[in-house]
Design a protein around this nucleic acid. Structure first.
Length: 414
RNA sequence: GCGGCUGUAGUUCAGUUGGUUAGAGCACUGGAUUGUGAUUCCAGGUGUCGGGGGUUCGAGUCCCCUCAGCCGCCCCA
């Protein structure tokens, strides 16, 4: 039997309903904040990611779906969408004036990784990017939107952690400090950390090994190595979040896997997700637009995992709430045509109604209606046709009443 | 990429130290009732035992390979 490719899956039924609800909520909330939707291609030239996400990152190193197309182009199925959005901004010259540009996206991403619950090779992200503003206020605005989104979904047990990873000017000093610290107690760190200290020293900070965490006691704190402007930036953001009642904790060991972050970096973790606890992450990436060949434009953004979000919603709220339509059941040929005529009229008025077109007997039609969760069964037989009514059966109550045809829309809405 | 576990009907699971025709609940299909579901009664397919190979007189059971999923690591959403 044919099967979906490893790490990919079909979305349908209840899970699809949650995806829809999450996406609807995102669009509604983001529109209020003035964000526009953008869709960029799944395929990008490999250079877009090598130059943005970073050659040393795991994503670029070992997790990309990359191949040569028939024209000999070296392409990649996007592992994330920030780089693609930046590429689009530059290509279409949308960042030539000084106006802020606020964008969001929803779509599938691809990473070739080992499967685990909540981690797929094709996964979905919703992201928001804000271009052209370097201020902590713009970060606060973006985070307020994020919080509103999470709140409207009714999510709980979430924690926002923030940190500053500084800029390319002040980070080398911190790298030196952390390396010196590491070398002084080298033997206490795990094998992975010995590798990390060369490739990406910041990552030593968030090693999960208890031995390493203990060895990190008294480690240099990055926020003490920030240049003055970054330090002011960081303090101001914390000040804003406090004044806006956005709960957060400062985590000096928070670092991120993508190379392009500057200054603010943050994550939201959920205690309800198991090992793959990262629900969303983001931060500032002031150098990326210029680095990809555009003007010098600051930017801030984040991305949230839709698959994990849907999983949380299911855990917290059970099945997605549905509004099951009514089922119109004609009995006999004359009624079958009349049912389509009536339904066309009701559909045009915006009613949700399904028509039983199989011509089966009433018993089977009612069984189907019950199984799919319909609220009403509207029975249209010879008797009803003659009198210009339907017999409306309330499937959960088991009661039945007679509705004149012209009252059906009002009663279904009621 | 590394380590561990699992795979039997649509689903949840039984299946004896290897033994002959592979089981149960729920679900499903038909009927009791050709205009009344969700309750009741009767009847019924429920199947490549994930796939391939091997050992054996004989494999759902043991061995190897492979595929898929789960858990942990790496990493991230």
């Amino acid at each position: 039997m044919a099967q979906s490719v490893k790490g990919t899956r079909d979305l349908f039924g209840n899970e699809m309903a949650w995806f829809q609800r999450i996406e609807d909520t995102a669009r509604r909330v983001f529109a209020r904040h003035g964000y526009e939707e953008i869709r960029t291609p799944v395929l990008e030239e490999i250079e877009v990611f090598k130059r943005s996400v970073g050659e040393s990152s795991d994503i670029v190193n070992k997790e990309m779906y990359e191949f040569m197309d028939k024209g000999g182009r070296h392409v990649v199925m996007r592992p994330e969408n920030t780089a693609g959005v930046v590429r689009a901004m530059i290509q279409h010259k949308l960042l030539i004036n000084n106006d802020p540009k606020l964008l969001y996206y929803i779509g599938p991403m691809f990473r070739y990784e080992r499967m685990q619950a909540g981690r797929y090779r094709q996964f979905w992200q919703i992201g928001a990017e804000s271009f052209g503003v370097a201020s902590p206020e713009s970060e606060a605005e973006s985070l307020l939107m994020l919080m509103a989104f999470l709140q409207e979904l009714g999510l709980k047990h979430l924690s926002l952690s923030i940190n500053s990873v500084g800029t390319s000017e002040c980070r080398p000093a911190f790298h030196a400090a952390i390396r010196a610290f590491f070398q002084a107690r080298e033997e206490r760190f795990c094998e992975d950390c010995h590798r990390r200290i060369d490739t990406n020293p910041l990552r030593v900070l968030d090693c999960k090994s208890p031995g390493c965490q203990a060895a990190l006691e008294g480690h240099p704190v990055i926020t003490e190595y920030l240049d003055e402007a970054s330090q002011r930036h960081h303090l101001r953001l914390k000040e804003l979040l406090t004044a806006l009642d956005v709960p957060f904790e400062e985590n000096p060991r928070l670092v991120r896997g993508l190379d392009y972050y500057t200054r603010t970096a943050f994550e939201v973790l959920s205690s309800d997700l198991g090992a793959q606890s990262a629900l969303l992450g983001g931060g500032r990436y002031d150098g990326l637009v210029k680095h990809l060949g555009g003007p010098e434009v600051p930017a801030f953004g984040w991305a949230i995992g839709l698959d994990r979000l849907a999983m949380l919603m299911q855990q917290l709220h059970g099945n997605a709430p549905l509004s099951p339509p009514a089922l119109l059941i004609p009995l006999g040929e004359a009624a079958a045509l009349k049912a389509l005529l009536l339904a066309r009229d009701w559909w045009s008025q915006g009613l949700a109604i399904q028509v039983e077109t199989r011509g089966t007997n009433l018993k089977k039609a009612l069984t189907s209606a019950n199984r799919q969760g319909s609220k009403w069964a509207l029975i249209l037989g010879d008797g009803e046709l003659e009198q210009g009514v339907v017999s409306a059966k309330d499937l959960s109550a088991g009661t039945q009443e007679t509705w004149p045809l012209e009252e059906v829309p009002a009663r279904l809405r009621g």
